[in-house]
């Protein structure tokens, strides 16, 4: 029977003070870099645009009578009127707000196109889509290049939102990201809004018809 091998114990040599200070300095340096990275990331995060802002439509601002592009079609607002009652087809629709009727001329550019989105935007940034309470004459109208179509779009908006409205259009119906979008100021002041609120007669929603070529 042979004797077991001898056990050799190893022990790390004690670090001198200089090495310990150097190691501590490195650790503090790394910690500082991590904290700085986190802080810079926080600042960037706090100031970067969110998805809604970053991928917002390209707005083409305009006024009544000016042609503005919605990429696949052009829009010209011809006029605006309002009331608290609206006649579409054989039915009359009342509202606690105001019916705003925007008359437009639309024309496709290169290929047949539809209006997928129509909305008015108030001065507080709230948007109101074209009413679904009745059939909108321009809703299903396919536009052809070089053949203008005129008609009205009806919007139902709160009384307090009427003054300062602007109308927006797009060919897309749900994906409006990074697409051309006309935003045309309707020039409605408080006087006009008050006059529409007091108007007793129902306005008849104009049908879509061919515009002048």
């Amino acid at each position: 029977m042979t004797a077991p091998p001898p056990v050799h114990r190893h022990k790390a040599p004690r670090r001198d003070v200089q090495t310990a200070v150097a190691d501590l300095g490195k650790r503090l340096g790394v910690t500082g870099l991590v904290l700085a990275a986190v802080a810079i990331g926080g600042v960037i995060k706090a100031h970067e645009l969110d998805v809604e802002q970053r991928e917002r439509p390209f707005i083409h601002a305009g006024a009544i009578g000016q042609i503005r592009s919605a990429r696949t079609f052009d829009v010209t607002v011809l006029g605006v009127r309002g009331s608290t009652k609206l006649k579409a087809g054989d039915d009359v629709y009342d509202t606690d707000g105001v019916w705003v009727l925007v008359k437009v001329r639309l024309m496709a550019n290169r290929d047949p196109s539809f209006v997928g989105y129509a909305a008015v935007r108030d001065t507080a940034g709230r948007t109101y889509r074209a009413s679904r309470r009745m059939d909108q004459p321009l809703d299903s109208r396919e536009l052809q290049p070089g053949l203008p179509v005129e008609g009205e779009v009806a919007f139902e908006v709160p009384r307090t939102a009427v003054a300062g409205l602007a109308v927006r259009f797009s060919s897309g119906s749900y994906d409006l990201r990074m697409d051309a979008m006309p935003e045309i100021s309707l020039g409605i002041d408080r006087v006009a809004a008050a006059r529409w609120l007091a108007a007793p007669d129902a306005l008849t929603l104009a049908d879509a018809e061919a515009g002048p070529t």
Binding site: D111, P112, R141, E142, Q144
Partner: peptide, 17 residues
Amino acid sequence: LLLEDTDGRTYSAGPSE
């Protein structure tokens, strides 16, 4: 069915017009 004109623009068959 689409009609293409000499400028490359296209038109739908049987349009609202």
